[in-house]
Nucleic acid binder design. Structure first.
Lengths: 350, 350
DNA sequence: TTTTATAATTGGAACGTTCCAATAAAAATC
DNA sequence: GATTTTTATTGGAACGTTCCAATTATAAAA
């Protein structure tokens, strides 16, 4: 049974050396595995470390070689399952690579964002994956170049910042799901949720417009409603659109969370989603499958995006001279029930 | 405009000292704010730091005083919204206290759990909040006492480990929701989901039994079905119970995720949840509100639990001699539609 | 003024590691 | 057995900070 050192005093490399009857340099060699050390000696040192309950002090090691194996993950909204799944992907890859991750939730506050990034730098993070808070300006990220810290912007593109980027194919995804609604015969289609200032909304709305125009549908500005990208936001946006004299027959939502809020509002107005009105989302978080009717949406594989982001950041860290790289993740249509395609197919078959 | 140092060479306290024409000790003094330093000097040093783009190196500082201001958060399943919300609470409190958090997801793997906890220790985490993976044994945590690292076990009690604990009031919560069903007139009530080996299930099932016995209802062992605590698990457990000759009229589920799976299975069997059968969950994650019919469940305030856990851990870190402390979070009944109480009330009123 | 107390500042020794150059031990060559 | 080569091991100087004891500058008291 290991007999750890007295409660407080951390056991160091030197104590191991003394106990094992070698020099601290030798212990360091077995620790790093760099030099040539006789197998028996290595074994003996290893045993001694185990016996004394030695814990490697990376802080001290980093002081010399500055290879921290820490990266930071800064999320703007962890309560959104999309980002939780993204985080899972990031963390998985980092863990496999022997890295450990700082995680912080900014809740869309740029101030917090600045704070946590500074903290992470001070603690020696060698790189940061940033899902930027809403009002982030590219110049907020200038320190990274100067300090030589690897920085990767994820999910929300930040125009003007020349960092590596990992984002889903928002434009194409949105145009795909819109075309799907058009193919189902919808003429009046609304776009709901998200704030105009959000890049992601601009991209998704752009895709929506592109599909509408390509199909020769005319776009009613009254059917473009902003809201916070939350369930409540979706609820009120949908309520607003339903109070219109000339209601839409289909609704493209900014994301799944908004879409779920919109579904709730539709039900409140006595509409059966998928029959009386079509509602589609974006992201394909696990919730999308679970709501009823199940949500037709655009899958962007958040876990995969996270993995990609982590991999790219690691690459960047290991080769600081490398040019910033972009990964645009695929976005494919997932047809479920909320768009009515299923009923329509049934009717056609019957 | 700040003119940061040449891209790579980190700027240190000594360079600041030289540039400002003071000694490194003085710079250290303004950094820590401990000694008495003339306001003008402080100002000047501060300016110089800003001008040269200085970043405090906490690693180096920790080497002397071992006050890392880092804590680790180890989660068993971040994809469960319950834990995501818990993490938000933890992180919020830590951030306010000027701490930064390592975060790791074990995905129920004890091996990963060991790895990440070791990593975190090596990187100098002063404390760890652990939501233990399923097969965690109390002796896996022995290192903490020996090393003097503050350790707090959250959500899943770990019998035999004498650490601080933050868990919801599982027993009372389960007995409350069960009594609610009994009051609605149900006689045959099933308990669904979770594995027998899970402490949380033992507690919740215990509450269920207590309520049943208190009401003089007899408990049919055939109505106690185990499953993975996932949506699919809930689905198959429900399917099993519905294939019984003598079906229950109400079902208490291990948690919300299982309950949602169970609802799906009930619907598949042509039952209208809330009318033909009552289904209730546990946790009150945000999903519970969104499903249809909305899920009657037990709210345990995951964010609040996270905040509490963080606060307790910080206390523990600042006073290592303190006794382990327990916080049992309240669990209150949230009546929605899936239990049929609403319809019943309507009928009574009409 | 001189003395005494107080406020500011400072060099140098830690902290736990890595790395380099130097040495010691062992193995291979002559 | 003497020499060279290779393999193992080692002290000591960094790394960027804090802290202590010592020093110097300033203010208050005499």
């Amino acid at each position: 049974m290991p007999q750890p050192q007295g409660s407080k005093g951390k056991v160091t490399i030197i104590e191991i050396a003394d106990a094992a009857g070698v020099s601290k340099s030798t212990v360091s060699l077995v620790l790093t595995g760099r030099g040539a050390v006789k197998p028996e000696t290595r074994q003996h040192v290893l045993q001694t470390m185990d016996r004394l309950g030695y814990v490697y002090n990376r802080g001290a090691a980093n002081l010399r070689n500055a290879q921290s194996r820490i990266v930071g993950l800064v999320l703007n909204d962890l309560s959104n399952p999309f980002f939780a799944e993204f985080a899972i992907g990031v963390e998985k890859v980092l863990q496999m690579a022997g890295y450990v991750a700082f995680m912080a939730n900014t809740a869309e506050s740029v101030v917090r964002q600045e704070q946590v990034m500074r903290m992470m730098r001070e603690h020696g993070a060698g790189g940061i994956i940033l899902c930027p808070a809403l009002d982030t300006r590219p110049e907020h990220l200038d320190w990274a170049k100067a300090a030589g810290t690897a920085l990767l912007v994820a999910i929300r593109r930040l125009p003007g910042a020349d960092t590596s980027i990992v984002v889903p194919e928002n434009l194409l995804g949105a145009s795909r799901v819109t075309r799907h609604l058009i193919n189902l015969g919808h003429e009046r289609i609304a776009f709901l949720g998200g704030m105009h200032s959000m890049v992601v909304r601009q991209e998704r709305h752009g895709g929506f417009l592109a599909a509408m125009e390509a199909a020769g549908r005319n776009v009613d500005p009254a059917l473009n409603i902003e809201s916070m990208p939350t369930r409540d936001g979706g609820f009120s946006a949908m309520s607003a659109v339903l109070s219109l004299a000339d209601r839409p027959t289909a609704v493209v939502c900014y994301n799944d969370v908004t879409a779920i809020g919109a579904m709730l509002a539709a039900a409140r107005h006595g509409l059966v989603v998928g029959r009386d009105i079509a509602i589609v989302g974006f992201d394909d978080t696990s919730e999308a499958r679970h709501v009823s009717p199940a949500l037709t949406t655009v899958a962007v594989d958040p876990v995969g995006l996270g993995e990609r982001a982590a991999a790219l950041l690691l690459k960047q860290i290991n080769d600081p001279a490398a040019e910033p790289e972009s990964f645009i993740g695929p976005a494919h249509l997932v047809i479920r029930e909320s768009c009515g395609a299923y009923q329509r197919a049934l009717a056609a078959a019957g």
